[in-house]
Write a protein that binds this DNA or RNA. Structure first.
Length: 699
RNA sequence: GCCCGCAUAGCUCAGGUGGUAGAGCAUUUCCAUGGUAAGGAAAGGGUCGUCAGUUCAAUUCUGACUGCGGGCUCCA
């Protein structure tokens, strides 16, 4: 007998060789039916894994993320079996479990697979699942594994196995399907009752664009149909919070094809939100000793060659802007402006008739136009603000006494994102960063990073955004894309790690997530669909000061190299507002609301008083409007609610006689008889205090 | 850029085996003068994303393009 320690500390005896599932059966049949997998001494295993010595066991059910993980991983295998049965000759890539569901990458050999095929696959999966086929683990050698998948002609599996070290490889078999897999898996397929395939997408083998593109099929499964139905309803609910939908409903922003993809037009209502945020952050910057600056939207190509952006990130920039004379010179002698346009059009037409032409960058890209690009220095729409800020720093001699120099700007930058990547406000081609660059001594770096981090935290706390994670992005030791000296990288990475620790927030370190010039600390949040977006970022940079040969005069009267810190607590105002819209589901706190107060008269007799009231509110700096449309009061209340106006005032005889207001909140709650002066004061206080909750006291 | 899907009025959506289209909301006007989530009526509004092809005829079928959505890749 062996002794099994359960999570509550109790110990149960078990015959050696029996499994966690046997243990569950011994405790209760219901528990056994709910046991999906088990954690043995901290490691997730099959529930059927034989236990041979004393250990701690936690039975994993649907309520446990690891239990669901095993469930969905097994579901991926089940889907693969169904696909193999329905589409003989399909080749399989990888099929992992996700946070919500699973996917499998499949090569259908050129056959198109679309959502129209889902139903058939779902039916087949359920049919197989009903057979209660056990998932059997099997140890094989590398040679056996290669032999098996070689004979099966599954090139992707063979590719995977070839990448493995020699040693034991595990297979899992259920029914007639065998997969290369580490596990763990469910005891049998019968656990999977509700099945829903969600989407198909292309995915490159091993995530490399140069490799074959496989068909990735996403799905989700549940132990009960009811749970699937509830999940689908919850998904629909989440979509109602989508910033693209709310942005349209509340007229916060507009993106117009004719202006260009990924270029956000801020409408009046959205502009209010943005302006309030900018005012708020500007105030915080002043408190922290920042100086605000303004710089133009373009800079010379040579500037970005110095900074390194142009050569390294040419692909992600808009094509250079080149002076018409230079272009003309480039394109031939005696080339008039109209002739030049004709030529550009002719080249564009030629490109358009070919495949994969992109943006005309081939046409006016400086290096293509002239063999010697010295003759032609175009301008670039700025992809980053740092070179401009660096030039401000370098515009005068700096003493160590001046440091740190903190230059801040709401700087708009432009990046040529791939068309397939653009998404509402969260991924765009032109956006405004709440950017700043700090120039400091090496000794000042830790304190400055900490200052940046606490600023980010202050901002997120004010907005009630507690659901974020912190990621320390380090360099990938195997990649050559980074510039700068390894010892500086080490110092910078240490500074970032220390700062994150000092701040006392949980964080993860992720190699390969650093910027090309230095490590960074990112604040990452999820949108309604569960996608992660990077918002605030703090980056340490030893590289650009070298490239621009920056220096300050030290106490020793010698030139010293400053260190730069790039930071943007919101990231970009576009992305941040997009996330914010979803965070509040369009119901902004009072200070951010595009319209704060709406006045509804009970009937037209109170129109004049209503106008006077709105004038008073406006004079107090509040955003108030009168709804005097000839609609019923009920209708106007409804519209005000749908417009998410936080304070809805109803005005009738009683209010005019008593000089009070009757407030309706978005919750539907009513506060009657608030003296007018008190109401205005409370509004001003809500606004100034940037309160998250809107409440009014009757006196 | 790549894979799959989608595109009908300002918005949400119906419709049609090919014969140029409907609803609700919104807008405008009129009536109703309303006490907290839709009072009533009328009117205006569409080259059915764009361009080709097939056809006597295309919004409907084919193709390309553009845009959007979900992924992939990328993301300073």
């Amino acid at each position: 007998m062996i002794q099994i320690t359960l999570p509550d500390g109790s110990v149960r005896p078990l015959e050696a060789g029996q499994s966690a599932l046997d243990l569950a059966k011994a405790i209760s049949p219901n528990l056994a039916r709910a046991t999906l997998a088990a954690k043995v001494d901290g490691e997730v295993r099959d529930a059927t894994f034989p236990l041979t010595r004393d250990c701690a066991v936690k039975l994993l059910t649907w309520d446990d993320p690891d239990g669901r993980h095993a469930f969905w991983h097994s579901s991926a295998h089940l889907m693969a079996e169904a696909l193999e049965a329905l589409y003989p000759g399909a080749k399989f890539g990888v099929g992992p479990a996700l946070e919500n569901g699973f996917y499998y990458d499949v090569d259908f050999g050129g056959r198109a697979f679309s959502a129209a095929d889902f139903e058939k696959v779902e039916a087949k999966m359920k049919e197989i699942a009903r057979g209660d086929h056990p998932y059997r683990r099997e140890d094989v050698s590398k040679a056996q594994a290669l032999d098996f998948f070689g004979k099966k002609e599954d090139p992707y599996k063979v590719d995977l196995i070839q990448g493995f070290e020699d040693g034991t490889i595990t297979f899992y078999r259920q029914n007639g399907f065998t997969d290369l897999c580490r596990g763990p898996h469910l005891p049998h397929t019968g656990f999977i009752r509700a099945v829903k395939l969600l989407s198909v997408a292309g995915a490159y083998w091993k995530g490399d664009e140069k490799n074959a593109q496989l068909t990735r099929i996403y799905g989700i499964t549940f132990p009960k149909q009811k749970e699937l139905d509830e999940w689908l309803v919850a998904q629909e609910e989440a979509k109602k919070r989508d910033h693209r939908k709310i942005g349209k409903d509340l007229k916060l922003f507009h993106i117009d094809d004719e202006v260009g993809q990924g270029l956000v037009l801020w409408t009046p209502a959205g502009s209010v939100v943005r302006q309030e945020l900018q005012t708020y952050i500007s105030g915080e910057l002043s408190k922290q000793g920042y100086s605000q600056v303004f710089t133009p939207h373009i800079g010379k190509l040579s500037l970005y060659k110095t900074s390194g952006h142009f050569p390294y990130y040419k692909e992600s920039q808009f094509p250079p802007i080149v002076a018409p004379e230079s272009l003309a010179a480039a394109m031939g002698e005696n080339c008039s402006c109209s002739e030049l346009i004709h030529r550009i059009e002719a080249v564009s037409a030629k490109l358009a008739s070919g495949v994969n032409e992109r943006s005309g960058s081939e046409v006016i890209g400086a290096e293509r136009v002239l063999p010697d690009d010295k003759l032609l220095d175009g301008f670039l729409l700025k992809p980053m603000n740092c070179p401009h800020h660096i030039k401000i720093f370098a515009s005068q001699p700096r003493s160590y006494r001046d440091l740190p120099v903190r230059l801040a700007e709401f700087g708009t930058v432009y990046r040529w994102e791939q068309s397939g990547e653009l998404t509402g406000m969260t991924r765009v081609r032109g956006f405004t960063q709440d950017d700043a660059h700090l120039f400091c001594t090496e000794e000042q770096v830790p304190a400055e990073i900490l200052g940046c981090l606490s600023l980010v935290r202050t901002v997120l706390t004010t907005l009630g955004m507690s659901q974020y994670r912190v990621r320390v992005g380090l360099r990938d030791p195997d990649s050559a894309k980074y510039t700068g000296l390894p010892e500086n990288w080490d110092k910078a990475e240490r500074a970032c790690r220390d700062a994150a620790q000092t701040l006392g927030v949980p964080f993860t370190e992720e190699p390969g997530e650093a910027a090309f010039y230095g490590p960074k600390i990112d604040f990452v949040v999820k949108d309604v669909l569960g996608r992660e977006w990077q918002l605030g970022t703090v980056q340490v940079d030893y590289n650009l000061p070298i490239r621009f040969d920056l220096s300050y005069n030290g106490a020793d009267n010698q030139p010293h190299r400053p260190v730069m810190i790039h930071r943007a607590p919101f990231g970009s105002l576009e992305r941040f507002c997009g996330v914010l819209i979803e965070h509040f589901a369009g119901r902004f706190p009072f200070w951010l609301s595009p319209q704060q107060v709406r006045v509804l008269t009970v009937n037209e007799a109170f129109g004049a008083y209503g106008k006077a009231l709105v004038a008073r509110l406006s004079a107090a700096g509040l955003r108030a409007e009168l709804d005097e449309r000839g609609e019923s009061l009920g209708k106007r209340v409804r519209d005000a609610q749908l417009d998410q106006v936080p304070a809805i005032l109803t005005l009738g005889k009683r209010e005019e006689d008593e000089k009070t207001v009757s407030v309706r909140l978005l919750s539907g709650e009513q506060v009657h008889g608030v003296p007018l002066e008190s109401f205005i004061q409370q509004c001003v206080e809500l606004h100034r205090g940037r309160a998250l909750e809107t409440r009014f006291a009757a006196s």
